[in-house]
Design a protein around this nucleic acid. Structure first.
Lengths: 338, 338
DNA sequence: TTGTAAGCGTTATCAA
DNA sequence: TTGATAACGCTTACAA
């Protein structure tokens, strides 16, 4: 009863008349195999349309050449652009990426991490949900090299790469203050997320520097849902309307916020200036191009990926956060208030 | 010399005083294991922080519970939104996704496919590059269930799910014709891509239906590079300028095209109407929201994924294309020419 | 330069 | 209800 399975090195071995070991060494360009037999082996491998079984290899070598990447929502261009860069980086180093979305959901994150552990990925790049770090602990307990991306924990338990979010929040706010704005609305996401907290800190710092008091009613919170941000913005401006500028946690939400502002009858930037974060590609292509804090995603991904690779290779971790310097990218969504 | 490797069922077996086989059966909720021993086994597994090794399991079961997804560019929201839906779909069925970008590059596609074959993914969801289908043949030769997504080959070699692109092109064009536009520019990508050809066919069909001749100078070609589309558009409108409406191959390029049109001093939709394809989320949030052909991505992904799963489970393929009905979504980027 | 044997961590088969 | 034993396809000693 012949099976219909892919050919193995043993079949090649049988056909060529050598041992499986020799086939393995030939196919992996190891030394100590005569050119003659090597040629034969390669020819036969091609003839059989042989493809090495990475699963079997992974089992013995204890390395899968696979990285798990766990992010909140890959349909958000911010993450999409990061994932793409990461994929390019790791592919060039011989690794593939298993992708998981969390939707900012703790249980989904937990489940994703569990399967990544089971699949024995060599490392994990994680944008953690929430502030507890419980799921992250789980990975560490399993000794899988992990680098956090874009967010960190108050008490560092793993290396992390973030944008310098406090600086980003500061830069955004200072820019608006310098333009003369005094009442600056911050449309933020949950403070469970470190970048939300940090950006807000920077915002407060800049206000203080300009001698302004922070007004509690000038921070409103939204989920990552575009519709939610839209509604909350509309509410704010149709009711209170006491702001001349807006900072939004991220570009994709900022775009939704812009829409709300326009729909409520105000103009950007004449009535309201707006600044986002992330510098997603599309921001520069909007009819009113978006002023934003550029976190330097490329550098973030590169740093995080290199760190992860080091971690994988040497088991030598430096727990703690590395923050990448952001820059203010001024476009046409911000204008002097005078 | 104790190793520092993750615990195995054999260690659990040793501690509990049973055989590895029993442990395996207990942990997999198989029948025929006494509640007593089962409880012991589970307790010990937790105590050891045991995690099953999916690699070893994959080797013997010949299934990795992993799907390869190969797309052109995951940072394009169109693909990002599809990948996200696919990830959700497959996760709920116990599969993970390995993601590969091709950048529309044949060799990169080839390389990605090779590693997916080596990693023995259970199936592949592929948006194929080019028209040759050579790489697709390679997968089929290895008998890995494959469904093509968004594009098909002239001579079908695998099942494929596309939007009904000819219909889409037709709907877009008819919409503009009905608004009174006579000179409609088609900014297209390479005809190597089936959707580009098909959409163009629909365009020609609509023109003919309205008694108009197709004017060769009214199709220009761009790459997927946003800057490229921007430049080509600017060129066209600053030189020839003989069009009152534009159809663009996809939304993300359409946004770039809008920018170019505005930068050249024309207004949308007063001077120029514009229609895209894909209905990416952001299209509805633009200050001038984008009229577009909605391919019904969700249904495409669902159909393709279900087909792939069937294919995996039953080996029963229906080669040929299934096309999903698109709909015209009218927003504010199109206006009567009268 | 090549072959033998053992083992990676599971599951499957069959016997006890 | 359980346990031996043999795979799965490969690599890694070590021996020839």
């Amino acid at each position: 009863m012949k099976k219909n399975n892919p050919p193995t090195i043993r079949e090649i071995a049988r056909l060529v008349g050598v041992s499986a070991n020799t086939v393995s060494r030939a196919l992996n360009n190891k030394p100590d195999v005569s050119p003659e037999t090597k040629k034969n082996i390669i020819k036969t491998a091609q003839f059989l349309n042989y493809t090495p079984n990475a699963i079997a290899r992974a089992l013995v070598q204890r390395t899968t050449r696979t990285i798990g990447m766990v992010m909140s929502d890959i349909s958000d261009p911010f993450f999409g652009e990061m994932v793409k860069d990461a994929e390019v980086f790791f592919r060039s180093r011989g690794y593939n990426l298993i992708l998981c979305n969390t939707q900012e959901n703790f249980d989904q994150e937990k489940h994703s991490i569990e399967t990544l552990i089971n699949k024995r990925v060599d490392g994990i790049l994680l944008t953690p949900v929430g502030k507890s770090g419980e799921n992250t602990q789980e990975i560490l307990k399993n000794r899988i090299p992990t680098v956090l991306l874009g967010r960190h924990f108050d008490k560092p338990i793993a290396p992390s790469i973030t944008s310098d979010d406090e600086r980003g929040g500061y830069l955004a706010t200072r820019h608006l203050l310098e333009l003369g704005h005094q009442e600056i609305l911050f449309i933020n996401v949950s403070h469970h997320i470190s970048s939300a907290r940090d950006r807000f800190c920077g915002y407060q710092k800049a206000l203080k520097e300009f001698g302004l008091d922070y007004n509690e009613s000038l921070q409103i919170h939204t989920s990552f849902d575009l519709e939610d941000a839209y509604q909350k913005t509309k509410e704010f401006f149709s009711q209170t309307r006491k702001a001349t500028a807006v900072i939004v946690f991220c570009d994709i939400l900022a775009i939704s916020v812009m829409k709300a502002i326009i729909d409520v009858g105000l103009s950007i930037p004449q009535d309201i200036s707006i600044v986002g974060f992330d510098n997603i590609k599309i921001g520069s292509l909007l009819p009113i191009s978006l002023t934003t804090i550029d976190p330097n995603k490329k550098k973030m991904i590169e740093t995080a990926s290199e760190l992860l690779l080091e971690f994988i290779q040497s088991d030598n971790v430096k727990v703690g956060n590395i923050s990448i310097e952001p820059t203010l990218t001024i476009r046409s969504s911000t204008l002097s208030s005078f």
